[in-house]
Design a protein around this nucleic acid. Structure first.
Lengths: 203, 203
DNA sequence: ATAGGAGTATACCGATCGGTATAGTCTATT
DNA sequence: AATAGACTATACCGATCGGTATACTCCTAT
């Protein structure tokens, strides 16, 4: 009934993992939250680790789709979208459920080097940076990859900053910084000691 | 013998908390790592939570002192120090023990709103930003607070980025961005008005 | 009608969790 | 020599952890 039991379990787990932390969430609590039993849970997921990875992989997909949709709905030129990213960020962080970035949090909870959790988390930000880099390229950035990395640093920084202390204006400052960096990356500015290994084309 | 037993326990706990995560570290493991017993541990610390807070508070003090020392040793003008911050960051991140920021990680593990862990973590970055803001003011920034927040966003972003994926050049890009932001904040430029969503005139 | 699969209910497993009780060892001071 | 306090050793507590075994109730497809 209602919906796929597997999906119900995954949803319940996702909500608990994100709101309370992964290690702090037991499988009993997940089963109860999904209105089912551990037996069914283990029918669809080999182990808790398996469930954790399913959570992260789904979130990887869902969150990026949601985010891009939000950005696209706010602006329609590449440059405006690059800035709209920070407006979406701001709105997301104002949400009462906001509890930081699920991937950053997961990485903090599973620090072992080769961990799958770490890999999925890194993958998320790879994808995200690619999205930013594409936008950067479309608005004529001289170094889209660099700009994308810089902007994503601001974004990640704002997230963790807001996580530790709410409503401290992280998103606004991140946007202000982004404006400067974007302009600087687009406009032809010679100096400011930023060679960025740009061969030729200088003049 | 050797040194204060209390301090030995705290040291062992700190190392385990940072390298493996707080929730992943049991008190038995701490006692064993400190070459003592749980009984002694509970003589000096009321509870594990107490030990966690002691860890964070000590790290708050120690890390900032260490960081400022490192920066001071690298440069002696405010502006140069503002940039040296990112060199110290880079060296720290290259360390094999690097596992991200203890406070960001702790905040990820203890997400409940009023949690003491969250408060100590927020306090750390308040102090840190004050340090940056002082440097910013000394080099004639027009808005030291804004610049300090922006730079600290870059810094925190670089930390979590490096945590998820090592050696991806986060610190270098953070520094490049910092150079631009610092110059922009010092040089006499009207204001950081939005070039794109500019509603109209700007006196 | 009946067999099989989906899902439930519940009890259990060994291990570990944070934390405590009790008894004993050691050393320094008196 | 006696005492006291710091520290150890060890066993224990109830609770919870991730995970499993068994038996049950359904519903559906043949």
């Amino acid at each position: 009934m209602s919906l796929n039991l597997q999906e119900k379990i995954l949803r319940a787990a996702s909500e608990l993992f994100y709101s309370q932390g992964i290690r702090a969430t037991g499988v009993d609590a997940i089963a109860k939250a999904a209105n089912t039993t551990k037996m069914s849970l283990y029918k669809y997921f080999m182990s808790k680790d398996d469930l954790v990875l399913a959570f992260l992989r789904k979130r990887d997909e869902d969150f990026r789709v949601w985010f891009v949709d939000q950005v696209d709905g706010k602006a329609d030129t590449p440059k405006a979208r690059l800035l709209a990213v920070f407006d979406v960020l701001d709105e997301w962080m104002a949400t009462p459920e906001f509890r930081g970035c699920a991937f950053i949090n997961a990485a903090a909870e599973f620090p072992l080097a080769g961990n799958s959790v770490l890999q999925v988390s890194a993958g998320f930000y790879d994808h995200f940076r690619r999205y930013i880099a594409d936008l950067a390229e479309q608005c004529g950035s001289k170094s889209p990859e660099s700009l994308a990395l810089q902007l994503s640093l601001l974004l990640e920084g704002a997230i963790v900053s807001e996580q530790m202390k709410r409503h401290s204006g992280s998103a606004e400052q991140a946007k202000q910084a982004a404006i400067i960096l974007i302009e600087h990356s687009i406009i032809d500015i010679p100096d400011t000691s930023l060679p960025t290994s740009n061969p030729g084309e200088q003049q």
